[in-house]
Design a protein around this nucleic acid. Structure first.
Lengths: 123, 123
DNA sequence: AAATACACATTGGATTGCAACGTATAATGT
DNA sequence: ACATTATACGTTGCAATCCAATGTGTATTT
């Protein structure tokens, strides 16, 4: 009996502004290393406010793979169960840079737009 | 026969990263003034990269009104046809500030995350 | 052998924005 | 006068995204 999805509440718009940024965030996380699914999920939570349902990460990773932006390989873990590792392809690196450049411009224009609302702080 | 919506192309992710930010952007634009629909649309294009279809603006404005964040009034234009003006309610101002604060934190975390991909430039 | 933990995966639903089309009023053209 | 154009608002069907819930498989623990 929890969180019946109140469209008035703040929960909804928080989710909506985060929507669409997961691909970029995941590509950025994979910029320097290979990681497996749940590991990416944990890094997202730590580095950004992007907390997402477990199932969602695989949905997005599958999409990235279908687009040829990442490649994968199953790896047997000495302790545990096999893990599927993900890393960027050449196309993935190009896309990551393109998205980052676009995002950078977009973020700063939004930032400018919301400055007046933030200056409300100081009396 | 144009733009058959290529999921591989850059058009799609551009749209997706912008999605969800329209509500905040519109509330921010209404922070100091009243405006009518198409006027808001033009300001979005000018101040941000948020270019949206005409129909969409009314969809969102109707949603904002249904949530009690804006109020409206028809005004006869001396030249032209009646315009519906929008302005923030008290609840709308509170929501705008809450969203702006959250967005500010989110934007800076994304910004940090994508820095490595942008430094590719020099060299 | 049952229970627990870890990791990956799928399905139905809610929400968003777009494309296309529709309505209404006023100014313009011939 | 009446068709055309411009401005402004509105609606409907569709595609894409993410979440919640649930399912599958493997390994560890007791």
């Amino acid at each position: 009996m929890a969180a019946t999805r109140d469209p008035e509440g703040p929960d909804n718009w928080e989710r909506q502004v985060k929507k669409g940024w997961l691909e970029l965030a995941i590509l950025a996380i994979l910029w320097n290393d290979k990681f497996y699914g749940l590991e990416i999920l944990r890094r997202l939570e730590k580095d950004t406010d992007l907390v997402l349902a477990e199932g969602t990460i695989y949905l997005i990773l599958a999409r990235l793979k279908a687009e040829g932006l990442v490649d994968t390989k199953w790896v047997e873990a000495e302790s545990g169960h096999p893990r599927k590792y993900y890393w960027l392809t050449a196309a993935g690196r190009r896309r990551a840079v393109a998205m980052a450049r676009y995002a950078s411009g977009f973020l700063s224009s939004i930032n400018t737009l919301i400055q007046p609302l933030l200056e409300k702080e100081e009396k």
